[in-house]
Simulated scan of single mutants.
Amino acid sequence: MAPTPSELTTTEGVQAYIANTPFASHTVTSLSGGTGNFAYRIHLSAPFEGQETLVLKHAEPYIKNLVSFAFSLKRQTFEYEAMTRIKEWLPADSLVTVPTIYHFDRELHVLIMEDCGPSGVPTLKDFLCKSEPSILQNLADKIGASLGRFLGEMHTWSRTDPRGLLGLFAGNTQALHISAWVTHGRTVQTLTEDLPPALADPPIEVSAADLDVLRKAANEMSAAITAARDVFVMGDFWPGNIMVKLDAEQNLERLYILDWELAKPGVPGVEIGQFCAEVDLVRRFVPSTKDAVKKVLETFLHAYAQECGANVKMARDALIHWGTHMVVFTPRVAWGDKQTTRQVVKDGVQIIVSAAGASKQDLRESLVGPLFSQ
């Protein structure tokens, strides 16, 4: 008897599901990364297309780590469509790519795909935080430029609405609302009524005038995110969703972009801001990475603008989202000590306030200045 969806939340259920298929495995192990789905590494009994391991993702109608949060199963269809279309669009030898999908079970909500992370392949977040300084310094320019070029090319490509791309992903309405709520929907409450522990003792101080600016910016950005229809975005473009594969000589071989459940029409500046904020947090909490991370950010922004151009609205949106991400996520993720966390949140507030009314010249002199350097 075939497993029921709920049985695929266990390694035993997964092993039963793939028995008597080309993906039959002698060992199934749970993967700790990600919060939305159940993910496993399957160790194949016989190689499949030359690979000894694959990754299986199974979706339930909730977030894996937060069962009370209903999460539409349609997300997996959107992920399949996004990854399949991006794979078709990209050149086969593209440095930045997505895993190949080998099987999609629409009924039991299962994806089986290329394993991009065996043998200690790190996420970009871990690579930035933990790599040997010399290796990181040598690869910083290439990583930043490659990712900026990919994102810019993808945004530009999507504006032509290839094969009804934008209309299809406009149906991912839950992703639109999640992206608005999880950041801009929580900006003010993070600083006032819903203080995370790092900000609560003593309560962090933010002036009433700054809170008014933050509230207005948050409302405008939330509305823009939910109304966006012109550009396809990955939806969760941050270093934790990027795998860094090096060759034997420690040269950059491939960058894999994972987890496309939140793909949708979106605001380009939000995508830029999320990536930059997370990379910025590395240098703020791991000072030894400062020079290399600066290179990553500068080359990322410069390469993106070379592909897409830059304008005041895009840059302002990116900077506001950069600051918002710092405010909302820094005190909720274990980055470092309380004092540094509070200072980063305060810096995030000032980034938002300065960005809200920034002129083009102000933006040129800001963190997003490299957008205007092409």
Rank of each mutant, 00 (worst) to 15 (best):
N241F: 05
D280Y: 13
P268M: 09
L214P: 09
V213L: 03
G240R: 00
E271Y: 05
E193L: 11
L199W: 01
A198L: 12
E253M: 10
P202C: 05
T289S: 08
G273V: 01
D259V: 07
P202D: 04
W260Y: 07
E205D: 12
E253T: 07
A224M: 06
A227N: 06
I204H: 02
L262N: 02
D212E: 14
V244R: 01
L246Y: 12
E261K: 08
E261M: 06
W238H: 05
W260P: 01
K216L: 11
P197G: 09
E278F: 02
N251H: 15
A209N: 07
V267G: 07
L199A: 01
V213K: 02
A198N: 07
R229V: 09
I257P: 00
F275N: 03
V279P: 00
S207A: 05
A227R: 08
G235F: 11
P203Q: 06
Q274N: 14
I225M: 13
D210P: 00
L262D: 00
C276L: 14
S288R: 14
P196K: 07
V267T: 13
K245N: 10
P287T: 03
E249V: 11
V282H: 02
T289W: 08
A277K: 13
G269R: 04
K216V: 12
D236W: 04
D291P: 04
E193V: 15
G266F: 11
T226N: 03
E253K: 14
P268F: 12
A248F: 04
S207F: 11
M221I: 08
V270W: 13
W238A: 02
V206I: 14
P268A: 13
L252P: 07
S222C: 14
D210S: 06
T289P: 01
E193M: 07
K216M: 10
I204D: 04
E253W: 09
L258R: 06
G273R: 02
K290T: 12
D230Y: 07
P268W: 11
K264F: 15
V279A: 14
D210H: 12
Y256L: 00
E278A: 02
A200L: 04
V286K: 13
D201R: 09
C276A: 14
V282R: 07
A200P: 03
F237D: 02
G273N: 06
A200D: 07
P202L: 03
L195Y: 07
I225E: 08
V270T: 10
L211H: 08
Q274M: 10
L258C: 08
T289V: 06
A208M: 09
P202I: 13
A277W: 05
V244Y: 01
